[in-house]
């Protein structure tokens, strides 16, 4: 009796999960490769790659894809370089005004980004950073760094001091301990930081538009205008392409992490 009930519970949960998370993705993919699929047909009647042809037919698609990946990749790296020391210091040291600094660091995501971007635009014009990839990379740090610092800080908080001390008493200097003990133990936080930052950078439209001035074209720049069109197949194709990027990134990142751990682990 209870066993049967358990089975039912599981089945319900599974179908709910499929309905909410998996079904829309499949639906979107089907939509991108079907032709004129609309009510009352319950399944696509005709398959056609027209949506994808439009997407890849755009002359800017490859350059903007490259730009998007380049910018997001560099932004992820810069985030780690800047956020790791900040997060470590905030987690390990106690000093006057720590709470104030912490809240200051969160400000970029509390204040509307547009308000900051307008002011920064002027500064960037003076510095000559507008209309180029470098400027866009810098401006993407704005909505990403607060998250990176937060996630990494809680990662360091979770790891007690003892691990570093254990490495030290075994004779390893602090740098070695960081790379061989802290980084491996921090992998969950590192992974979420990387994916979060990548996705945030990927979906920037306004900031890229303002600082890039239209010269730096990324995927969202050619993706958003299509929303005004009624061509569902094209939008679906774009969306699938968009969704694929973080997944590919995650796979690549995971492989890199695994290789790194392998190297560290050799006895």
């Amino acid at each position: 009796m209870t066993r049967k009930r358990k089975l039912w519970m599981r089945l319900t949960m599974l179908s709910l999960f499929m309905l909410i998370f998996v079904a829309p993705v499949i639906l979107m993919f089907l939509k991108s490769v079907s032709f004129g699929w609309s009510w009352p047909d319950w399944r696509p009647t005709q398959f056609d790659l027209r949506g994808w042809r439009v997407v890849f037919g755009d002359p800017r698609i490859f350059s903007s894809l490259w730009n998007t990946i380049l910018i997001a990749g560099v932004v992820v790296m810069l985030n780690f370089i800047i956020a790791t020391p900040a997060a470590y210091a905030l987690s390990r040291f106690h000093f006057r005004g720590k709470a104030i600094i912490e809240s200051l660091l969160m400000l970029p995501i509390l204040i509307p980004v547009l308000a900051i971007a307008m002011g920064l635009h002027l500064t960037m014009i003076r510095l000559g950073l507008t209309d180029q990839v470098l400027g866009v990379i810098f401006i993407h740090l704005l909505p990403t760094l607060p998250y990176a610092i937060r996630v990494l800080k809680s990662g360091f908080d979770r790891l007690k001091n003892e691990w570093e001390e254990q490495g030290a008493v075994l004779g390893a200097n602090s740098q070695t301990v960081f790379w061989t003990v802290m980084v491996p133990l921090m992998t969950p936080s590192i992974r979420s930081t990387a994916v979060l930052v990548f996705v945030i950078s990927l979906s920037q439209y306004v900031l890229t538009a303002i600082i890039g001035g239209g010269t730096v074209s990324t995927l969202p720049m050619i993706y958003y205008p299509f929303f005004t069109s009624a061509d569902e197949a094209v939008i679906a194709s774009f969306s699938v392409l968009f969704a694929l990027l973080p997944i590919m990134f995650l796979i690549l990142f995971e492989i890199t992490l695994r290789v790194y751990l392998r190297v560290i682990k050799r006895p």
Partner: peptide
């Protein structure tokens, strides 16, 4: 072997 690999000696 951690101390032997990453220690001083």
């Amino acid at each position: 072997t951690y101390g032997l690999k990453y220690g001083k000696n």
